[in-house]
């Protein structure tokens, strides 16, 4: 049992949760994920680590309330417990001194890029963060990210904060930056990662994405997280979740992500309290 320290909505429908899991915090590395089970008999859902605190023994995640299990998570309160918090799983993001790195986050990905930006900065890189959202009221953690990066670019579809545009404007943003970008890291929904990879391909900038496939165990046992990377089948949980965005078969990733779409909505068509 893992005690919830904090759970709150940070922007509409996006939540930040901090739980007590000292062994996970102790081993956590940037880019790794955890699996939460919100309730007994509950589904196992993978979530990227957005932060951790070894001293306090806590780990934090940022999640979007999209379905039955995340709705259940969203409704839990500080002081309550989660039956499962297991991790840290997957490989860490490769961190090296690349030069200038662009970290792009959208939706929950704004939280996910935080530890990566922090580690890249500590390794001596120039870090530029691009935060993408529909509108300014969906942006969060700017202060936190500013502390670990050299520049922040906000990108909103309605132009209410920073530049007006969306992930399709990424190439243009890169061109207008004062420095040459040596590496791009994309984290967010499938569309953001796919579209962003398309933008950086003609620029020939190495682009790393963090796939959010379906998973059950997260340790390589079930294989539901299969993806084709450079025409080879990989398990996102053990070989990833970070892959070269230019080599991922995005059509397949998108299809596989939708496998249970229909089943996911069945339990939501209910008036029962969660």
């Amino acid at each position: 049992m893992f005690t919830i320290f904090e759970n709150r909505m940070i922007v509409p429908n996006v939540y930040q949760m901090t739980v007590h899991a000292p062994d996970v915090a102790q081993s956590a590395l940037p880019g790794q994920f955890v699996i939460f089970r919100p309730e007994e008999d509950g589904e196992r859902i993978p979530l990227t680590l957005a932060d951790w605190d070894v001293q306090a023994g806590t780990v934090s995640v940022v999640y979007l309330n999209v379905g039955r299990s995340t709705a259940k998570l969203a409704s839990s309160k500080a002081g309550q417990t989660l039956p499962t918090v297991v991790g840290p799983l997957g490989n860490a993001m490769e961190i090296d001194r690349y030069g200038a790195v662009l970290c792009v986050g959208g939706c929950y990905g704004i939280g996910s890029i935080y530890p990566i930006a922090r580690a890249l900065k500590a390794a001596g890189n120039t870090v530029v963060c691009v935060l993408e959202a529909r509108s300014s009221f969906l942006l969060y953690w700017q202060e936190k990210l500013r502390a670990v990066s050299d520049q922040i670019v906000c990108l909103t579809r309605d132009g209410t904060s920073g530049k007006r545009g969306h992930i399709g404007s990424l190439a243009e943003i890169i061109r207008t930056l004062p420095m040459r970008i040596d590496r791009v890291i994309l984290n967010g929904c499938n569309y953001l990662m796919m579209r962003g990879s398309q933008e950086t391909l003609p620029l020939k900038i190495k682009t790393i994405v963090t796939l959010n496939t379906l998973m059950i165990d997260g340790t390589g046992m079930c294989g539901v997280c299969r993806v084709s990377v450079n025409s080879e089948t990989k398990f996102a949980c053990v070989h990833g979740p970070h892959f070269d965005g230019h080599q991922v078969d995005w059509a397949e990733v998108t299809q596989r992500r939708k496998a249970y779409l229909q089943e996911e909505v069945i339990p939501l068509r209910t008036t029962q309290p969660l």
Partner: peptide, 20 residues
Amino acid sequence: EYLTRFNLMRGYSFPLVPTP
């Protein structure tokens, strides 16, 4: 995957249990 959904996650009771 198939067996885990049914056994460990008790998928045969879906949608009473959340694992689809």
